[in-house]
Amino acid sequence: MTAAGTVARTRSVALSVAWRSVHNAFHNPAILLPSVLFPLFFFMAFAGGLSSVQNVPEFDYRSGYTSFQFAFICIQSAAFGGVFTGFAIAGDFEFGFARRLLLAAPNRSGIVAGYMIGAMVRWMFVLAVVFSAALISGMRIDGSLGHLLALLVLALVVSATSTLWAAGIAMRLRTMQAGPVMQMPIFILLFLAPVYVPLHLVAGWVHDVAQLNPFTALLETARGFIAGEPTKVALSAVCLVAMFTLVVGWARGGLHSAERAG
């Protein structure tokens, strides 16, 4: 097969896997609903219930608490979307469907890429729902369209990264019971970041940890885009590239492990 032929085939595999992932989500409420309702609910609870905290004098975010929380939900839902896809991958390996993919794909990385694309597409649907809810509840956007697109790209990379992370575990353990192992670290990273208030208002040891947490930079950058005041963009970009590179290796190792196990 020529190099171009291999690329075309790999793309075809990736798109097919992505199609299935999206198709299944939209034909099965048990998959789609949680991934939409959870972010929507967190958004409602945080933006609705905690907004007074923005009246603290040192709370210095200019676009309001709804925007402040929307940025968090954006990142959170992208990260959790990847984990939900990880559950599906684990199920495919546990129940044998993955063999169909392994047997058909000339280049098996295409399978993982397909899951990743599927997760991103699914997340964009979630985003559309949460974004509509945010607009309805009067979210202020001070950033330009360019800023919003940058936010979209940032969250998409988060989605891809968390999918590869979860895929790496799913392909190593190959059982749905691995769910908590995928979810817990992401959950902890997300909540050891400035979720409710800007970093300088976070108290105690969580503040110290949050300073080292890459998600802190990602959150600040995301909030900066909505406020039209890009913040720590370079740092976030470096964090994203570094994390993405790491999880690519991690997922590749997972794929090898799955290949060895048949």
């Binding site: 007074s52 603290v56 040192e58 409710y196 208030v197 208002l201 976070v202 105690g204």
Partner: peptide, 13 residues
């Protein structure tokens, strides 16, 4: 623990 740190600022309200 996370909430106590994250929302401690609210006590200034």
């Amino acid at each position: 623990a996370v909430n106590a740190a994250g929302l401690d600022a609210a006590t200034d309200l």
